[in-house]
């Protein structure tokens, strides 16, 4: 550890420009990564807000028995998908219609007389809304199965809107995922390349260490340590910069978008996501340094390579 620290100090002293360039590129990459995660988190919470509004209406056939209605209610409850299950009888449906349209079409219900065409129904509020493709698939499965139940005439859940919403959510999550993977691959290349440069620069040192009996692990270890420190420092610095930028933009946007309740809708990364970014940065540093160091060191350890 002490040896690795002193080698890191030497590396900073004798290759300041290489180290600074690598650090800057990494910080910039991690800032973009943080921004992507921040965007994903807030956009997802924004979409979730819409997804929570999803309601399913189960319309019943005329003349459905009380037993069949009770059985249906139990089936809906047992699915565990809904937080609110409200039953509307034919009369309640008519009363609701009267309440909504009575002002514009007075006496519309009275005109129907005893021949009330409105069906009895269950109005269901999705427990977690639709915040992922999985939620969407669960709702669709439920709708298909409930349609087959005795007494069910039709089921409506705003199919067109929900389908579009679910596919938008899916495409967004997928794009962010792919983008992050590309960015992480770029980071591996940057750190690996810096390690490669450092190894070339210290070729003499490595050869002499080999000459005096250093094992491969002893030679590679300090490079991996450097990668770990570099990844850790760059991810922490990126988080600090992102937070400063977020605070600055937050103050500006909360003034111009105050009508949209911006302050409560947009949040900085949670502690778990901050920890995730630092962990990714640190491990990425170590792993990419290890990949490059292992590859290059075998070329010089002539005797070991045989």
């Amino acid at each position: 550890m002490i040896e690795a620290m002193s080698r890191l100090a030497r590396s900073l002293r004798f290759q300041p420009m290489t180290q600074l360039t690598t650090f800057t590129v990494l910080v910039a990459s991690f800032v973009v990564l943080t921004a992507a995660i921040l965007l994903e988190q807030n956009f997802a919470s924004f979409l979730t807000h819409w997804g929570r509004e999803v309601k399913v209406d189960v319309y019943l056939r005329d003349g459905v028995t009380t037993d069949a209605t009770d059985t249906l209610k139990k089936t809906i409850e047992s699915s565990g998908l809904f937080s609110e299950i409200t039953y509307f009888s034919k009369d309640q449906a008519a009363a609701q219609l009267e309440k909504r349209l009575g002002r514009y079409l007075p006496g519309v219900i009275d005109d129907l007389g005893a021949d009330n065409p409105l069906p009895a129904s269950f109005e269901l509020k999705a427990q977690h809304g639709i915040v992922s493709q999985l939620d969407y698939e669960k709702i669709v499965r439920f709708v298909k199965s409930i349609k087959k139940q005795t007494g069910v005439d039709d089921v409506s859940y705003g199919q067109g809107w929900v389908e579009n919403y679910a596919s938008a959510l899916h495409v967004f999550s997928l794009s962010i995922g792919v983008f992050m993977l590309v960015l992480l691959a770029g980071c591996i290349f940057v750190i690996g390349n810096a390690t490669g440069n450092a190894i070339s620069h210290r070729r003499d040192e490595i050869e002499i260490m080999e000459l005096f009996g250093a094992t491969k692990d002893m030679i590679i270890g300090p490079f991996v340590f450097e990668g770990v420190i570099m990844g850790f420092a760059a991810s922490v610095m990126a988080l600090v910069l992102s937070y400063v930028f977020y605070k600055y933009q937050f103050d500006l946007l909360s003034q111009s978008l105050s009508f949209w309740n911006f302050q409560s809708a947009v949040k900085f990364l949670s502690l778990s996501r901050i920890a995730l970014i630092v962990t990714i940065g640190t491990s990425l540093g170590g792993v990419s340094a290890l990949l490059w160091a292992r590859r290059i060191a075998t070329g010089w350890a002539a005797a070991e390579a045989k």
């Binding site: 080999e210 000459l211 009996g213 250093a214 094992t215 491969k216 350890a301 005797a303 070991e304 045989k306």
Partner: peptide
């Protein structure tokens, strides 16, 4: 190969 460093010592 793994014994080489120990020999060089």
């Amino acid at each position: 190969p793994k014994q080489v460093p120990f020999f060089r010592r």
